[in-house]
Nucleic acid binder design. Structure first.
Length: 461
DNA sequence: CGGAATTAATG
DNA sequence: CATTCTCCTGGG
């Protein structure tokens, strides 16, 4: 995109460009989202950056009004380098909070030297600096949105020491954490954290809600016309729940989050954003699919890809959905959760947690009305997750288990990893839609958004 | 704030 | 790959 488009978008404060670029003002040293309500700066004082980090590297600090830390994420980097994109994703999932840069490079199958080169070219900064800045922006949003004590904010954002947190914060954001401490007034925690998570319109909440509704597992999830919530189980064994309420006017969700203990929150928020598919570029995706779906009335505008909480859950739902209707699969999942899901305190009394691999690996699934072979497949998958989590993290490796074929793997990738380019050509629902509407097209033309093509076809039946 | 030990960036 | 530079954290 060229400067003329940026200019147009900022002058109209177009929310469809929120998070896709940032506007830095040389006269103030501050950078903003294109939607910033502040008076429009003169063009001669404006510089455009395609990421917040890039603006920071040029010496600008985030605006306190439009809060660039709350902008939806954008993966649309100029170089469209898939390795770099994967690296950015992994870092955003916390790869550098726990592991080292060399470990990340190893995971990506490249040398750490090459990784830093990719970063220098693509983002204008180094991996560590990029990661640190994401942590700082997240900390900033917590300071402004919640009443969490500063020390807990540091911890939640993945810092190991307050000292270092303060230093970095000062240096990169040009203010201190206590400067940003929310004004007193709003009550402290009763264990609840309220966050606002924004998206880039269009966002088709009705469609997402109507997708989730027939799949809703009682006790595990809850839904109203304007909200969706569910229980959470975290990697560290912690549990909690959230309720996300849609706010169309503000282009986002107000999320109430309850966790059993304070924890590193960054990955939790990433997961919530993935569940609701907040970072998708619906405008681009819809434009891309429009020619293919023209004879069907065009794509569903703002269609989002609903994720599952974990890859394991996606795998379980996929196995239970093999060769059966949505409602039959739904009954099975509900039975499974009812029989094997632990209970915990929820928003309205008892709540169910999705059964863990450890629990399912130890059971015979006698409670479930399911062919014995399929039960065994489920148990095998649970064992894989329990015994070899590294292997289980790649659905491609599940194929070695009997009873798991390409459909299951692809479904799990689409819902559990939110991969955007999954074409479920063999899926019954997709085939029925294609037959009913008598369409022929080459799904390859939808790349890299074939998951959204699949969803569009599902919505036709 | 300063310094030691470790890790990351770079030619 | 080796040198320089930055990050990280405990303790004062």
């Amino acid at each position: 995109m060229q400067t003329a488009h940026y200019q147009q978008a900022r002058l109209t404060r177009d929310p469809r460009f929120d998070g896709r670029f940032f506007v830095a003002v040389t006269s103030t040293g501050i950078y903003c989202r294109p939607i910033c309500p502040a008076p429009l700066p003169k063009e001669e004082n404006v510089r455009y950056f395609d990421s917040a980090v890039a603006a920071a590297e040029a010496g600008f600090r985030p605006c306190l009004r439009c809060r660039p830390d709350s902008a939806p994420a954008s993966w649309a980097w100029k170089g469209t380098d898939t390795t770099l994109e994967r690296a950015l994703r992994l870092i955003d999932e916390g790869a550098l909070v726990q592991g080292s840069v060399s470990r990340l490079a190893e995971r990506l199958g490249i040398s750490s030297r090459y990784l830093t080169r990719l970063f220098q070219n693509g983002t204008g900064t180094s991996p560590k600096r990029y990661a640190l800045y994401q942590q700082l922006l997240f900390a900033k949003s917590l300071l402004q949105q919640t009443g969490l004590p500063v020390a807990e904010v540091a911890f939640a954002a993945g810092f190991g020491s307050i000292r270092r947190f303060n230093d970095c914060f000062r240096e990169r954001l040009q203010m201190t954490p206590s400067d940003l401490r929310r004004q007193p007034g709003k009550a402290g925690d009763n264990g609840e954290l309220t966050l606002f998570l924004s998206y880039r319109p269009p966002y088709n909440w009705q469609h997402l809600r109507d997708f989730l509704r027939p799949r809703l597992i009682p006790g595990l999830e809850w839904i109203t016309d304007h909200s969706y919530g569910r229980s959470l189980t975290l990697d560290n064994g912690q549990h909690g729940y959230f309720t996300a309420t849609h706010d169309a006017a503000r282009h986002g969700f107000r999320v109430a989050l309850h966790l059993s203990q304070p924890t590193v929150l960054l990955p939790v928020v990433r997961t919530l954003r993935r569940l609701l598919d907040l970072d998708a570029d619906s405008g681009c995706i819809d434009d891309h699919l429009r020619p293919l779906l023209a004879s069907l009335g065009g794509p569903v505008p703002g269609l989002r890809l609903p994720g599952t909480l974990s890859l394991f859950e996606a795998g379980v739902r996929a196995i239970l959905g093999q060769q059966v209707s949505v409602s039959a699969a739904h009954k099975l999942v509900a039975q499974l959760v009812e029989a094997y899901g632990q209970t915990g305190p929820g928003p309205t009394g008892e709540m169910r947690l999705f059964p863990s691999p450890e629990v399912l690996a130890e059971t015979d699934l006698a409670e479930l009305r399911l062919p014995g072979r399929r039960k065994q497949t489920l148990i095998d998958l649970a064992c894989l997750f329990r015994d070899e989590p590294q292997t289980a993290a790649d659905p491609g490796r599940w194929l070695q288990l009997s009873g798991i074929g390409p459909w299951t793997v692809q479904y799990a990738r689409m819902r559990g990893l939110s991969e955007s380019d999954i074409w479920l050509g063999g899926d019954l629902g997709v085939q029925r839609a294609l037959r009913q509407h008598d369409v022929t097209f080459d799904p390859a033309a939808a790349a890299p958004w074939r998951s959204y093509l699949t969803l569009n076809l599902w919505s036709l039946t």
